[in-house]
């Protein structure tokens, strides 16, 4: 298994670089949103031989018009050609309602039209994109797993499986996390992070605390079924505590069998 750290900005890159030197991680996952305006060759020179994966949060491909998406897709393809990532990943989220931008992303309706939108964006990027499962906020997220199964069946797309998001979704009343493990989806590219209870019994994917035992348990269970991670990014970008982050890397090595 390869372990990665999410690089969202310069501060956590510096920390991840220390983990890399000390042998705790094997690759960086770049949040492309914050680096897409840069020269990818400059990034390659800076990180040397360390492999990278790409993560995209704010492409807003469900909302944006095609001309703006085309410009963005062109940039992403340039990064892909230069940096040869382990995978490219994105989120299936809606950012606007009635054309007005929300302060945070909201869950989509899992229907046929949105499946077509995923197909369109994937075609524009010209590669096999792994889409991350969402930490559903309510039982309305119950259709998510079937949507991912349809993405696999109809488009040949596998998920970027976020273990803690699956736990959070279950706690918020959506699909039991174990159903993802029992599905025929390829869950080998994965994420995990800390989450916490916010207010009104709402659990949120906060990335600001250590990874919870429920998430480790789900990873162990997947691993025992022969479906454990081959890549696992431990996301930490809120209240970034170096000791806690490093401790999660050590824990991850111990939780997953050597593969």
């Amino acid at each position: 298994m390869r372990l990665g750290a999410n690089i969202t900005r310069n501060a956590n890159f510096k920390m991840a670089e220390v983990f890399n030197r000390e042998g705790h991680l094997d690759f960086y996952e770049l949040l492309l949103d914050n680096f897409l305006h840069l020269d990818p060759a400059q990034i390659r020179r800076r990180i040397g031989d360390t492999p990278v994966s790409f993560h995209i949060m704010g492409s807003r491909f469900m909302d944006r018009d095609e001309s703006r998406l085309a410009v963005m897709a062109d940039r992403i393809r340039r990064f892909t050609a230069e940096l040869e990532p382990l995978y490219v990943s994105d989120h299936i989220l809606r950012w606007t309602l009635g054309g007005q931008l929300m302060s945070d992303a909201i869950e989509i309706e899992y229907d046929e039209s949105n499946l077509r939108r995923v197909a369109k964006w994937t075609g524009m990027l010209g590669c096999q994109v792994r889409f991350e499962n969402y930490a559903s906020c309510s039982p309305e997220g119950a259709g998510q797993l079937d949507f991912f199964k349809a993405m696999k069946a109809d488009l040949g797309l596998e998920p970027l499986f976020d273990y803690s998001n699956a736990v959070v979704a279950e706690l918020n009343g959506a699909t039991p996390a174990v159903e993802w493990i029992e599905s025929d989806l390829d869950l080998t590219a994965s994420h995990v992070s800390g989450f916490r209870e916010s207010e009104g019994s709402l659990y949120i994917d906060s990335h600001d605390v250590r990874v919870g035992e429920e998430s480790w348990e789900l990873i162990r269970r997947a691993d025992a079924n022969g479906k454990g991670p081959t890549t696992l990014v431990i996301e930490r970008d809120g209240v970034v505590d170096q000791d806690e982050w490093e401790s999660d890397f050590r824990f991850a090595r111990a939780a997953v069998s050597a593969r």
Partner: peptide, 9 residues
């Protein structure tokens, strides 16, 4: 000015 490099925000 947006992020200038991996080292400079």
């Amino acid at each position: 000015q947006r992020t200038q490099s991996l080292d400079q925000g």
